[in-house]
């Protein structure tokens, strides 16, 4: 376990086409890891544009309808929103711990424990979100004929609310799946997570899903609280 950095990982995780590079396995593996990190970052840049387009819709409508958006923002449940933000930020902490632990390849129990905590926190987020959805439906906050608020553009706010929270929840669901996959693999084979680039890749994706929520929080829950 305490061999030169990269050797154990290279033996376990070096893949084509990186294995064909004209370097030693340790250097080739370092390059493979860099490639994986770079690749997921390109994908994250793509995801940034994905959510930027959604946020742009929100921004344009909020600029055009400030009063209605304030009224609609007041109608969301800030307790659920704040709780869920705290849950996701905490899950980012455990995810970062898991990734940094696996990167060193030294702390298997820490890595597994943190991965389990991350998945559990993700699930907790979804449960809270489920309660919130139930309350939203009871309060007639679904756009349509029986919508609770008077202002017509408030319906646009809630159209966005439902769409973006569902899209976010799908992203989070994918994240939970990826984390669980690592957890199962790491449970079965003690060495599989050691220096495995997949941990880093999963972690980066997880953090992005968290970051999206960090911006959704002031967009969905904070408008119109002062009034």
């Amino acid at each position: 376990m305490s061999g030169a950095p990269g050797e154990a990982g290279a033996a376990a995780h070096l893949r084509e086409p990186w294995s064909e590079l004209e370097t030693g396995p340790a250097a080739a593996f370092a390059r493979q890891r860099d490639g994986a990190t770079f690749g997921i970052w390109i994908f994250l840049a793509s995801e940034v544009l994905f959510f930027a387009a959604l946020f742009l819709i929100y921004t344009a409508y909020r600029i055009a309808n400030p009063e209605a958006f304030a009224a609609a923002g007041r109608a969301t449940n800030i307790v659920y929103g704040t709780l869920n933000t705290a849950i996701l930020l905490t899950s980012s902490l455990t995810m970062a711990m898991a990734a940094q632990g696996a990167e060193k390849g030294l702390f298997r129990r820490l890595t597994l424990g943190c991965l389990a905590a991350t998945a559990a926190l993700g699930l907790a987020f979804l449960v809270v979100k489920g309660f919130e959805y139930r309350e939203d439906i009871e309060k007639h906050l679904v756009p349509g004929a029986h919508f609770a608020l008077r202002q017509a553009p408030a319906q646009i706010f809630f159209g966005f609310y439902w769409l973006v929270t569902v899209v976010h929840a799908i992203h989070l669901g994918i994240g939970i799946g990826l984390v669980t996959r690592l957890l199962v693999k790491g449970w079965r084979d003690p060495d599989v997570l050691t220096e495995n680039p997949q941990v880093e890749v999963t972690a980066l994706y997880w953090h992005l899903v968290d970051l999206v929520w960090v911006f959704l929080y002031p967009m969905l829950y904070l408008p119109g609280r002062a009034g």
Partner: peptide, 25 residues
């Protein structure tokens, strides 16, 4: 590919949501 396509994905998703679920967008 990487920087333009996600915006198309969102656009089509919004069309899908407005058409299939009646969300006002």
């Amino acid at each position: 590919f990487v920087l333009a396509t996600p915006v198309l994905a969102v656009t089509l998703l919004l069309v899908f949501a407005e058409r299939s679920f009646g969300l006002p967008i």
